[in-house]
């Protein structure tokens, strides 16, 4: 049923899809770490720290990812910082999605009732312990569905690194499309591959949402 151009190039495109998944994982992990740190600093940090975090969030929320990628690609080399493109791409993606992740975590943490803090503190728990025992276990469950959504946004955004010449699924698609003169079949096909990755992840997110409540 699939067009032959697609079947002929399926091996190449699969390897490229593997690269997309790899790039996604390599970016999700640090962006989750950044997101958690920024969320905590925004909630508990001193005023100057909170202002600093706000500036970071403001810039990342207001400037396109592509412009940040160009910054890494065109501007940083002039200041003597020559990152390997893959590392640079992952770094920019992590910083960019770290901001989105921080909102996911922050929203989950502050949505927990104050009484949870009161109860933990009244037992004599200190802040770190309260976070570890009481707050995080609940916040992670609350954050799971929006976290998965953000991961899907991130996976889709890995396609942008093709514009700064990194090889992944979208880049491979362009190569194959140019070679075979079958852009419709090829881009249709890689859209399907993205769909397969993202849709299965979103179903997993729904499954998590279903099991979110405790004791059910």
């Amino acid at each position: 049923m699939l067009p032959t151009v697609l079947i002929d190039n399926i091996g190449y495109l699969s390897r490229a899809a593997g690269m997309t998944i790899l790039l996604s994982i390599a970016s999700v992990v640090p962006s989750a770490v950044i997101g958690m740190i920024v969320a905590l600093l925004k909630i508990f940090g001193s005023v100057p720290i909170r202002v600093l975090m706000d500036v970071y969030l403001y810039v990342v929320r207001g400037v396109p990812l592509l412009v940040l990628l160009f910054f890494m690609y065109f501007v940083l080399p002039y200041s003597g910082l020559n990152l390997p493109p893959t590392l640079g791409g992952v770094l920019v993606m992590s910083i960019y999605f770290g901001a989105f992740m921080s909102e996911v975590f922050r929203a989950a943490i502050i949505s927990l009732p104050r009484g949870q803090w009161d109860a933990a503190r009244s037992l004599g728990m200190r802040r770190a312990r309260t976070l570890g025992i009481v707050i995080f276990p609940q916040a992670f469950r609350l954050a799971a569905p929006p976290f998965v959504n953000t991961c899907i946004l991130l996976i889709k955004s890995t396609s942008l690194v093709s514009i700064i010449s990194l090889w992944e699924l979208t880049m491979a698609g362009r190569e194959v499309a140019e070679r075979t003169f079958a852009p419709m079949e090829i881009f249709g096909g890689i859209a399907l591959i993205y769909f397969g990755i993202c849709y299965s992840l979103s179903r997993y997110g729904q499954y998590l949402e279903g099991r979110m409540r405790f004791g059910h």
Binding site: I152, K156, S157, S159, L160, S162, I163, T170, G173, R174, A177, F181, A182, P183, M184, F187, G188, I190, A191, Y194, F195, C198, Y199, S202
Partner: peptide
């Protein structure tokens, strides 16, 4: 909704720009 939410807008753009031109 599922289709557009689970595919990159860049790929959609390529599909429309290059694909439709070829067609």
């Amino acid at each position: 909704i599922q289709l557009v939410r689970n595919t990159p807008v860049l790929v959609q753009m390529y599909f429309i720009y290059f694909g439709l031109a070829m067609a």
